Simulated assay, not measured.
Amino acid sequence: MTTTRIAVIADIHHGQDTLTKRGSVALPLLERFVAEVNAGSFDAVIDLGDRISDEAPERDRLLESDVAMCFAKLAATHHHVSGNHDVAFLGLADNEAIFDRPSGSRSLIIGDVRCVFWQPDVSLTRTRGLRLSAGDLDVLVQLLAQDDRPTLLVSHVPLSGHSQTGNYYFEANPGRAAYAETDAIRAAIVDAPCPIVALAGHVHWNTLTTVDGTSHLSLQSLTETFISGDPAEAAGILDIEDGVLRWTVTGREPLSVTLPWPGTKSRWRAPLTSFAASAVA
C-alpha cells in the first residue's frame, strides 16, 4: 500500500477581525498554506468549513470568492464541507458555485483512502443550537453502509460530543459545539460496517477523543487567537499507510498523533453494568 497524504485546513474565517479571530490575515496565511502544499507531495486538500466570518449576503459572496481564488491555485485536488458561517447568508448551492466543487454529502476515494464527507444542516442561531434536518442521519447511515473499508469521516462539526471544558466559545455553550442528536450519530458510527476515524473543525481546538473505539480528531482554526494571543496558523497533515494513520498539526499549537488504521471493524465488549448494582468489583 502506498502512502496517502492529505493536507487539511479548518475555520479560515476570512473577514473582519474580532476579539479572538484575526480575519484580516486569513488570506496571507491561506496563500502560505497553498504554497507549502504545492511545494510538497499531497494527494488532496480537505477544507473543513467556516471559510469566512459572515456579515451579509453580498459581502459573504465576495469573501468566499476571495478564498476560492486561493484554493484555485492548488496543484492538488481540493474537497470541501461548509460550516455554519459559510451558510449563514448563502446556501450550499452558492458555495458549490463559488468553489466549483461539491459541498454536499458524498463518498469518494483519495489515494488509497475511502472518505465520507457528511454535510448535515449546520445552521446555527443563538436559540436553535445545532440540530439535524430530516434525512441527515439517514444519509450518514447510507454512506457508511456502502463499504466496509477503513473510512475517514469528514464533517464541519465534531461528532464525538466531547467535553468543551476550557473552550473559550463552547464551555458555556455546549449546544453549539455538537448536535442535539449526538447519541444517534454515535450509534450510526458504531453500527457502520467500516472502521472509522472522524475529522472535524468548528470548535477551534486540536483534540483527540475516543468514543466506542472510534477516534475523533478536531483541528484548530487557521486564524484563532484565544489560546496563544496570535493566530494559530494551524494546518493538518494526514499520512495513511499500512494500517497506520499519522496526524500532524503545524503552527503555534503543534500536535502529532499516531493511530491504528485497521483493515476491519472491531467490536468492543459490552460495558459492565454499574458496580453499585453488581457483585463485580
Rank of each mutant, 00 (worst) to 15 (best):
Y179G: 10
E233V: 02
T165D: 07
S123N: 10
T273D: 13
L143E: 10
A235H: 07
Y179S: 12
R5T: 13
D100F: 00
A26G: 06
G23H: 12
I12A: 09
S65N: 15
K73F: 01
T3P: 05
R51Y: 03
G135A: 06
F226A: 14
D100L: 02
Q146N: 02
R61I: 06
P102C: 11
A232T: 00
L92W: 05
W247R: 11
F42P: 05
T151C: 10
K73A: 15
G15M: 02
Q16V: 11
T248Y: 06
R131W: 06
A178I: 03
V87N: 03
T20M: 06
A44L: 11
D60W: 12
A88W: 01
D11N: 10
T151L: 03
G40C: 09
E31V: 11
P271R: 06
H13I: 11
E55H: 14
N38G: 05
P193D: 09
G166L: 05
H14G: 00
L159P: 07
I185H: 03
A56C: 06
E58D: 15
D54S: 15
E36W: 07
Q16L: 13
W205P: 00
V257Y: 02
V280K: 07
T77S: 15
T4G: 04
T182I: 15
P57E: 15
R59W: 07
E233C: 05
A187Y: 10
L143D: 01
V37M: 07
L153Q: 08
D50C: 08
D239I: 04
K265H: 13
D138K: 12
D66C: 15
D11E: 07
A235P: 00
R186V: 15
P193S: 11
F117K: 00
L30E: 08
W118M: 03
G49F: 08
D191A: 15
R101Y: 07
G15L: 02
L272I: 00
P254V: 07
E171N: 00
L259R: 06
G243W: 09
S41H: 13
D11K: 01
T273Y: 03
L219V: 14
S82T: 06
A200F: 03
D138E: 14
E58Y: 06
R32A: 13
T125H: 01
R5D: 01
E253D: 02
I52N: 08
P262F: 03
A184F: 12
R22E: 10
E241P: 01
H80W: 03
N173T: 15
N173C: 08
L29E: 09
R22D: 11
M69R: 15
G213A: 06
P174H: 02
R246A: 14
G229A: 05
M69V: 08
A134Y: 01
Y168E: 04
T18P: 09
R269L: 05
